[in-house]
Structures are given as structure tokens and as C-alpha cells.
Amino acid sequence: MSQITPVLKREFLGYFRSPVAYVFLIVFLVASVGLAFFVGGFFKANQASLQSFFVFQPWLYLFLIPAIGMRLWAEERRGGTIELLFTLPLTTLDAVLGKFFAAWAFLVLGLALTFPLAITVGWLGDPDWGVIAGGYLGSALMAGAYLAVCSLLSSLTKNQVIAFVLGVVVNLVLVFLGWSVFNGLLSGFLPVPAVDFIANLGFIPHFDAFAKGILDPSDFAYFGSVIALALTLNYVALER
């Protein structure tokens, strides 16, 4: 297990050895703040909250997280470094967790860099800091779930484009399952409990709870299970 650290460190610093980190962070910040201001009506809502910021995150993550996750394994396969990695004295689990936590830490860094938005809200009004903290926590957990799915898909191919497209599609399904518009369509011909069940498989209902400041253990369990399941399959795919 101590072998996770070197992998994590190499992977995390690796983002900053290429323009990837800077491009990603800038796009992420501009897009998330831009959406909140210009589409979400951050000022118009006249509320001291980050609701208009968090509401777009499931959609933003849909494209940005596959961009980070696609290279995790596909790049190693293409470059042949996977052979180097797996002939070093570490286990497959060390490598899977090291890479996952490095990419997750990078995403959380991006998320943390949106803090001026929270400060702005605090300066303009009197927000409920608990709700804001809940939103950030939920967003970080949701990012982990997206990422774990992308890591799994990246391990199935040596082509990063395929990994990206699969990542978007599978995450899109997971977003759609819990999207109110889609659930509204379903309730036209499915009984309510069935629609509820389907909605609960998706990301949005669980994230919304966090964004409202509700910390329900079942929502933690949901994101935790998605991460654990995807990484287990990731491990199995690599051990094969």
C-alpha cells in the first residue's frame, strides 16, 4: 500500500509537466464561473448562494472529467510504459489507486480554485456556509465518481479518443438517469416508484442533496459505491 505514494506523486506532478494542467484549470474556471454568471443568473437571482454555480457542475463534468480520465491508462498502453509500471515492485491495486487519487486530487484542486466565488458571495451577502460547504463536498465526491468511471474505460483501450468518447457516453447515461427532465418523461408511462428507483441510480439527485446542504449517509454511500465498483472493474480489467 505504501507504493501508492510514488505513483500518486508522479501522476499528479505529471499534469504540471505539460500544458494539460494549465489548460484544464483555466477552462474549468472560466466555464464554471461563466455558466454561473451568464446562464445561471448569479446576480439576477439576488441570493447569497452558490446554487447557480453548482447546478451546472454535472454537465460541465460530463466533458471535462473524461478529458482528464481518458489518458490515465490509455496513454500507458500506447506508450508501452504500462509494461514498465507493472514490472516495478508494486501491485495492480497500488497503481489503480495511485493514479485515481492523483487525478482526483487534481480535480479537487480545480474545484478549490473557484473559492473566490464563495468569497464574493460572502462579501456581497450573508450566505449559509454550511450549504456552500455541502455543495463543494458533493461536487468533489461526484467528480470522483465521474473519474472512476473514466479510469475504468481508459483501461480498456490504448486509444485516448475512444476512452474520451466512452467516458462521455457512460457518464451521460448516469447523469440522464437522475435528470428531472428525463424522469418527467419516464413518469408518463412508468409508475412513480420505478421512476424514483431509476432516478436514484443517477448522479444528480444525490448531488442535489449535497448542494442543498443535506449530508445524507446514503448519498455518501452512493458516490462511494460508484467509485468502488468502477475501480474494482478497473482492477479486474488490468489483471486480466
Binding site: Q3, P6, K9, G14, R17, G79, E83, T87, L90
Partner: peptide
């Protein structure tokens, strides 16, 4: 694996790292 030094065919390495960074990583894992 800890008792073997292995040079795979065509010597794959993490290209974006410098030589010293790369060898430091190997040293750390070792």
C-alpha cells in the same frame, strides 16, 4: 520484481519527465 532489473523492448519511459525526475520516480518505487 524487486529482484529484477528489466529493460523492456524499445525502452519505454515517461517522456514528459526529465531523466533525473524519471530515475527518482523509479528509485522511489524501488
Amino acid at each position: 520484481k524487486s529482484r529484477i532489473g528489466y529493460l523492456p523492448e524499445s525502452a519505454p519511459a515517461y517522456g514528459e519527465m526529465t531523466v533525473v525526475e524519471f530515475l527518482n520516480f523509479i528509485g522511489e518505487v524501488r
